[in-house]
Design a protein around this nucleic acid. Structure first.
Lengths: 184, 184
DNA sequence: GTCTATAGTGTGATAGAC
DNA sequence: GTCTATCACACTATAGAC
């Protein structure tokens, strides 16, 4: 029966991906504590026990769901700050659900907090390298914090003044502010 | 026995305040879902049932604990943007625990989200009035979002680059960035 | 391999002893 | 009035039937 179009392994893989996709959506919407295995299973249309069977624990499911390819570190020449900002996440467009899930939980789930802090610290270091002057690290941290704040306000909290604004307009309006931090 | 230095009513008032203080601290540290009535009671050195007796529900306890005097709205003349920023929260110093408790829960507790969104919307409106030009509302929203992000990164997430920085230095370094947004 | 049934834990809330 | 004891519930996780 291994020659059938959908082998056992293939079916398993698809079910697993369906569970992960459902998990990402619900984790992103409710955060770690308030999402239940039951809800994830229901959304993925599988039995709750199957989720446990595949992932072992809620924590493990969360880790798998929010695992995203991280930004490759800079190699060789330093890029201009603008480009770095874009690459780091200044797109301001809709973020991947894995990222939203992580951010949603970062204030109440210690592991998520640790993960996000590490990621942001890394971005600060990259930016600080590109800036290079005296208090570059502080200014880089404030740039990253700014983007964090705008993302939270826009994507997670839904400030009314930002709800209608397009990502491009937000990025455009924000640019002089970030430039002021980068230039010192 | 009503003439004793500590009347029944007075004792009750003090116990209630001790519970609220403990609740603020734990809500600020762990967020709404992860704080238990039992933990609050233990910290306040009272029986868990007493907390329920006084406040009726965990939700009610939370609401009482995070209730803080809100910023009085502007009356009459518009203030300079700088002053408004200071009054709105740009002190960057340690925030009251009630505020931290609210912020800690704002991404995972719908009521907290609603409350924070309302408060921030109000600040945006005040700032937008003070700015006054075409896209004032968007720029005001980005200023508020910036302060939100820096506060989160500094007080709740603990970015390493910000951990050592004094509130004054952070405020000073951030000023040109906010000015760029205010001036357009 | 998948799911039903349930064990085990921690929670908010309540009733009644003192 | 305060607290001990307990309830009812929801959850994660496991074990065993199919």
């Amino acid at each position: 029966m291994e020659g059938t179009p959908t082998s056992r392994a293939e079916r398993r893989r698809r079910t697993e991906e369906r569970i992960l996709s459902a998990a990402r959506a619900i984790f992103a919407e409710r955060g770690f504590q308030r999402t239940t295995i039951r809800a994830v299973a229901a959304a993925a249309e599988v039995d709750p026990a199957l989720v446990m069977q595949y992932f072992g624990s809620k924590q493990e499911l969360f880790e798998q769901a929010v695992r995203i390819p991280s930004i490759p570190p800079l190699d060789g020449e330093l890029e201009p700050v603008e480009e770095l900002l874009g690459r780091i996440g200044m797109k301001m467009g809709p973020l991947p659900q894995a990222t939203l899930a992580m951010m949603r939980s970062m204030l109440t789930h210690p592991d998520a907090a640790e993960e996000v802090r590490g990621k942001l610290d890394g971005q600060v270091a990259q930016l600080a390298d590109a800036i290079g002057s005296g208090d570059a690290e502080l200014r880089a941290a404030l740039m990253v914090s700014t983007m964090l704040g705008v993302t939270i306000a826009h994507q997670l909290l839904g400030l009314t003044a930002l709800r209608g604004a397009s990502p491009e307009r937000i990025a455009e309006t924000l640019r002089p502010s970030l430039r002021a931090l980068a230039d010192g």
